[in-house]
Amino acid sequence: MAEITLDRLGKLYPTGRAATRALEEVSLKIGDGQFVSVVGPSGCGKTTLLNLIAGFERSTSGRVLVDGRPVERPGPDRGVVFQEPGLLPWLSTRENIAIGMRIQGRGKAEIEARVTGLLQAMGLLPFRDCYPFELSGGMRQRVAIARALALDPRVLLMDEPFGALDAMTREIMQELLLRIWEEDQKTVLFVTHDLEEAILLSDLVFIMTARPGRLKREIPVPLPRPRHYSMVTSEVFVKIKAQTLELIREESLRAMREEEGVEG
């Protein structure tokens, strides 16, 4: 599939005379077929990082390489799932999943077969002709994931995709995502503020510092695959969670102190 390399990546946002440093000197490598998560205190630049890889924004320093090629614009080789579904409200479930392939000029039969496969895998078959407003939040997000997968991207970028869902639906979606990933092992970058979610899903958890976002620690998750929700009570899981929680707490406190310092 694909490798992602971030090489001393930096992003400044101009704000009046000064500039906000959103990201600074982020260097990391994500291996082919790896599932990695990025966690950190709010405002640490997690989403900026994802936007840079997706090509929605341009970095102010450093480079993003996907399979050795620099990212210059968004494209169907990098599927993105946003926090909100962002479906086209005037298209049915089926059409929402198919539209990307149409843009790519794929053949009718290929589109038909792939869409049906995805509807099946996502449990959306009974809702194939529904419009987004007729679907629940969890179903909409499943359509959004199917839409991204329909393009057969080499990389899947997910920006807190389950953040807006209730706890029960979130668990179901996490398991669904695990099943899909275990089948075709795409490279996944998953941004979240939910530590348990990050550990349960990932091979590797990147912890970021408070603004300006830097890489603080890289924590491997040696839990066996296939993963299952019951693992959250395992000894390994609990240990990793305690360790990462401490690191994030440090950063969150630092971020708060700095904000108070600025205001006071």
């Binding site: 997706a54 090509g55 929605f56 614009r73 968004p74 494209g75 169907p76 990098r78 599927g79 993105v80 946003f82 909100e84 962002g86 479906l87 086209l88 539209i99 990307g100 843009i103 790519q104 839409r147 991204a148 393009l151």
Partner: peptide
């Protein structure tokens, strides 16, 4: 126009 929907369009290569 919803900016996320526009981003989705860009992702598809529109």
């Amino acid at each position: 126009t919803d900016r996320i929907v526009v981003k989705a369009g860009l992702m598809m290569g529109m």
